[in-house]
Simulated assay, not measured.
Amino acid sequence: MNRQSGGGVAAKVVTLGLVVALTSLLARMDVSVAGRDAAFNSFACPRFNPTRALPVALEELRAHPVRYQGRLVKVRGAYVDGWEMSALHPGPPVRDPWAADGIWVEGIAPMTLPTEQVVEMTGIVSAARPDAVSGKGHLGKWPAQLCVSSVWRL
């Protein structure tokens, strides 16, 4: 006995329509970073006006992350991404991306920027607690995390 009825076919047609609609929306998203903001992923860090951000040196942010907890900052460095890696480092060149000598970065679509691209990032800081066993980012090695609102190539 055939259990597939008109309702089963209708569900498949609706599902296929949703897949096509979502695929076309994704295909229309502009992921270019040439002279403007980079594309962001589905973690959707909130957008803010970069002119309202506090300029902070990467070394200062790394040395005193709790001072900037929850604040909108603007920071420059070399962005490095890869397998389980998304960080802003001093440089370029970046001697060892796993040395955690920068800050962890959230909110950038993978493969958006060339490796070690010098950028200015604006975003909200989340600092690791000084008394915590681990910090932010992959394996908790990072003293701070930046939820990125905007990225500009330099």
Rank of each mutant, 00 (worst) to 15 (best):
E60V: 03
L72H: 12
P90R: 06
P46I: 04
R67M: 03
G82T: 03
L18R: 02
L25P: 06
W83M: 14
V94A: 00
P90Y: 03
L16V: 15
K136P: 00
A10P: 08
V75M: 01
S86P: 08
L58D: 05
L72Q: 09
D131F: 05
H138E: 14
M111I: 03
D96K: 12
P50A: 10
A144K: 06
L154T: 13
I124Q: 01
W152R: 10
A53I: 03
G140D: 00
R67Q: 09
W104Y: 03
P114A: 06
W104H: 02
D101R: 04
V73Q: 07
F40V: 09
D101I: 02
P65F: 06
N2D: 13
F43V: 11
V33Y: 15
V19F: 14
T122R: 01
G102P: 00
P92M: 05
V125T: 02
V56T: 09
R36S: 12
S32A: 12
T112E: 03
V151D: 08
W152S: 10
R67F: 07
I103W: 00
K136Y: 00
P90A: 07
P110S: 08
D81V: 07
G123Y: 05
V118Y: 15
R36C: 05
V73A: 06
A39S: 13
G35C: 14
W83G: 11
R153L: 13
P46G: 10
K12I: 14
R71N: 11
V118T: 15
V14D: 04
A132W: 00
G17L: 14
M29G: 10
G17M: 13
C45I: 05
V151A: 07
E60S: 04
V105A: 02
T112N: 05
V73H: 08
L16G: 14
L154F: 10
F48N: 05
A11L: 15
V119T: 07
A39T: 10
R71A: 09
G123P: 11
C45K: 01
G35H: 15
L25K: 10
V151E: 07
R95M: 13
N2M: 06
V14R: 04
G102H: 01
A44N: 13
G91D: 08
A144P: 09
Q145L: 11
L146V: 03
